[in-house]
């Protein structure tokens, strides 16, 4: 029974990782663009949540809306003003610019918020759990996160497959050069993609803030988890991302069960193993 518990924990953790991964995957899918600062933006969203709710005392619901709006705006403007200028065949400029952003964000947050680790308390929810027959217990918080992750992915699914914007985004993913010939403004479409991805990043950051302690240097490992979930799931596949997150989450939780110091390493090793035996990922739809 203990192992069932572990498995459930891993699956629920996977939901959070799928949230981390969705934004990264979306930007890569539409623009073939990998944001090295992805994890740092997640942490930025976490700090925004902390500022709004803990420092300024706003209602959490208002805080969530504000974080999503702020992150979405940053995403749209950042893409329009900065990132669109460096997209192209040459992969060095986007990697470098986002690597530079990552360093700037980490150190900027260090200046503003200090290196102390923080957390946004969600009151009774933090410790509440649901007991199931057979000694199983599911934490309310992890469960809520998993449900939120499913909700966000489902929302993205509807957006992609049932709206005109989604159609345009899929078309951009197929052949961005043709988009202007359809009357689409590529710079605007790219910025919208980043805006949506940033909205997802905002939700991921809020979840991070409520789940664990975080500090300004917590970004890179979130980037790596997100990246691993994307690759395990297979490039360009929305639901594959969830599968990737779950595989990673289970690997980490099982690793932690073996030895506390083994949690993160186990996740990385499972990722490398999958890279060796199935480099295209579990549900690939797209070529790298």
């Amino acid at each position: 029974m203990e192992w069932v518990n572990v498995l459930i924990q891993g699956v629920l953790l996977g939901g959070l990782y799928a949230l981390f991964a969705a934004g990264l995957s979306l930007m890569f899918g539409v623009m073939r663009f990998v944001n090295i600062a992805h994890g740092d933006f997640i942490v930025l969203a976490a700090y925004l949540m902390l500022s709004f709710v803990t420092f300024m005392g706003w209602h959490p619901a208002l805080g969530i809306v504000a974080v999503v709006l702020v992150m979405g705006t940053i995403g749209y403007l950042g893409q329009r003003i900065l990132l669109n200028r460096v997209l192209g065949k040459d992969i060095l400029p986007p990697i470098l610019v986002t690597f530079g952003l990552s360093i700037i964000l980490q150190n900027g947050m260090m200046e503003v918020f200090s290196a102390d680790s923080r957390r946004v308390s969600s009151g009774a929810l933090d410790v509440a759990s649901i007991s199931l027959p057979g000694d199983l217990a599911i934490g309310a918080m992890p469960l809520l996160m998993f449900v939120v992750a499913l909700g966000v992915l489902a929302g993205l699914h509807v957006l992609f497959f049932h709206t005109a914007l989604g159609r345009l985004l899929r078309a951009t993913s197929d052949d961005a050069e043709m988009v202007p010939l359809m009357g689409g403004n590529k710079a605007h479409v790219f910025a919208l993609a980043t805006m949506i991805a940033s909205g997802v990043v905002a939700v991921a950051g809020i979840m991070l803030a409520m789940k664990t302690n975080f500090d300004p240097s917590a970004g890179p490992s979130r980037l790596l988890f997100a990246f691993e979930a994307v690759i395990i799931g297979g490039l360009g596949s929305l639901w594959g991302t969830l599968a990737g997150g779950v595989v990673l989450g289970v690997a980490q939780v099982v690793g932690a069960q073996i030895d506390a110091g083994f949690q993160i390493l186990a996740g990385h090793l499972v990722f490398l193993l999958i890279l060796v035996v199935r480099p295209q990922g579990l549900f690939a739809r797209m070529k790298g």
């Binding site: 159609r167 345009l168 899929r170 078309a171 993913s173 043709m178 009357g183």
Partner: peptide, 22 residues
Amino acid sequence: PEGRRLFPSLTVEENLSIGASG
């Protein structure tokens, strides 16, 4: 365009509709 350049992940009808984005 030369070589048609349809969007492979869109259906026929979606390919047509997207032409009306303007």
